[in-house]
Design a protein around this nucleic acid. Structure first.
Lengths: 130, 130
DNA sequence: ATAAAAATAATAATCATTTCTATTATTGTG
DNA sequence: CACAATAATAGAAATGATTATTATTTTTAT
């Protein structure tokens, strides 16, 4: 099944590429709908899954029950605010090799890890003080 | 709303305490049903949530779309097999302080992190070789 | 221009989980 | 022990995210 161009898919990719807030499928739907008023949610889901499978975007599971999508496919870590639920990128320069640590004394093979951090984001922290 | 005893809740707690395989709510339901043939799935969910809120068990999100439950509430890490989906405990002795690393240059407050490892478990690895 | 194949919109289905409600079980007090 | 207050239950319906289905529309190679 050779890939065929679709304006909807381009719009989804285009929208996502300008985002740093890791939108959900529904958030993508809401926005792309302004350009394509009768795009269906199913189309959004199908294309997000396709793009993720192609490796053009990343699906991010931060444990809040909803999938988020990230135009940045490079390895990096995420922070999730317990107060507002926002998802932000973290810039950890020292990449610790926790995979090797975990491999010690384990009889299987560790291929990777998923790590996310949670707490209170800067905005919510400032709001609490006032 | 003061807590009241319930035989169903005891059975759920009892069953879970003897497990190392991190069962899902449905798996708990299937087993406890042998003792309480008409326990409802809703009761299982409600009690698992209650026990987790009380801190007597832990809810484990390993990114497979289903919640798992763990009688071990102490800090430890999990491994998920990409082949069979099993969830195992990992024994990492050196606990790296990645929270502090992530905090560097971040304007919010990091309270914790969720980390899980994935790969091929020992059993599946051996199966692949044969 | 056209026909094959892929993508779409709209809708129905699925799956995990939560909520609702009438009934049952637990428990503190007389 | 009886009994009333209230928490917990079973069963069923509801919810929310996601996937599947299908008839129609787009894309694209010839």
């Amino acid at each position: 099944m050779a890939l065929k161009y679709s304006r909807q898919r381009e719009a989804i990719k285009e929208f996502l590429s300008g985002r740093k807030d890791h939108p959900t499928a529904d958030a993508v739907y809401m926005e792309v709908r302004r350009e394509f008023p009768n795009i269906s949610l199913g189309t959004v889901y199908r294309n997000l899954t396709l793009l993720a499978d192609l490796g053009e975007i990343a699906r991010v599971n931060v444990g809040d029950g909803v999938d988020h999508f990230d135009p940045n496919t490079a390895l990096h870590y995420h922070f999730i605010c317990r107060a507002c639920g926002c998802v932000q990128d973290l810039d950890i320069d020292n990449i610790v090799n926790i995979n090797e640590m975990a491999s010690a004394g384990f009889d299987g093979e560790i291929g990777g890890n998923v790590t996310y951090f949670y707490g209170i984001c800067g905005k919510c922290k400032r709001k609490q003080l006032s």
